[in-house]
Simulated assay, not measured.
Amino acid sequence: MQSYRITRAAQLLGVSDDTVRRWIDQGLLPVTDAVPAEIPGDALAARTLALAAERDAADEGHSSARNRFTGIVTRVQIDGLMAQVDIQAGPHRVVSLMSAEAARELRLDVGSLATASIKATHVVVETPKG
């Protein structure tokens, strides 16, 4: 089974190394016997799901879309009837094309907090080389 060092686990969870170490100390994340400490992949996956459930419980609305990326709007480009809106959600950049009217109604500006909800029938899954 794959395991992850603390720094990589923190990147994948979108938290700091210190937060991961705190969760280890609290018993929320187990570690292997490896030196330096590593977190088993299945435990990291379970913690990821728990964090997602906590975020979902804090959300006020309901949606059939399960892929939600909350982040900061980094670009709004309006050209005629259409707008391109870029959101940086942790390490993920999400680009949305929408009507200019919708972008204006949502008052999307650089620095705004926004959530991209994605529902797709085709999702490409990739794994690292090696």
Rank of each mutant, 00 (worst) to 15 (best):
R104W: 01
V95A: 09
G80H: 07
V125K: 03
I39R: 04
R93K: 12
A103I: 00
A52N: 03
D86L: 03
D79Q: 08
G14N: 14
L28N: 14
F69I: 01
V85P: 00
A53W: 04
L81S: 13
V123I: 14
L29F: 08
I87G: 00
I118S: 06
R107H: 11
A50T: 12
Q88C: 03
Q26M: 08
A46R: 13
T115M: 05
G27H: 05
E60H: 08
D79L: 10
D42T: 12
D109F: 07
D109H: 07
I78H: 01
E101F: 05
R107A: 12
M98I: 10
G130Q: 06
L44T: 07
P36G: 07
M1G: 15
T19Y: 15
T74M: 02
V31A: 04
I78S: 04
P128Y: 09
S112E: 01
G61D: 14
A10I: 08
E105C: 00
A53V: 09
S3A: 14
Q88E: 09
H122R: 15
G71F: 03
S63F: 00
V73Y: 00
T74S: 10
G27C: 06
R5F: 11
L81T: 12
A102V: 08
R5N: 15
R75H: 09
T74H: 02
R21S: 06
A100H: 02
A34N: 13
H62W: 08
G111T: 05
V31P: 01
T127N: 10
L113G: 06
D79V: 13
G71Y: 03
A100V: 02
T127F: 14
T7N: 13
G130E: 07
I87C: 02
K129Q: 15
A43E: 13
L108Y: 01
S63I: 01
R93T: 14
S99L: 02
I78V: 15
V20F: 07
P36E: 08
H62F: 12
D42V: 12
A100L: 04
H62S: 11
T48E: 06
A9V: 12
D25N: 12
I118E: 08
Q2V: 10
I6Q: 12
L44A: 02
A50V: 13
L108N: 00
V124E: 01
P36V: 06
S3Y: 01
Q2D: 07
V35K: 11
I39Q: 08
T19H: 15
E54W: 02
V123C: 02
P91S: 00
V110L: 11
P36H: 06
A58R: 15
L13R: 11
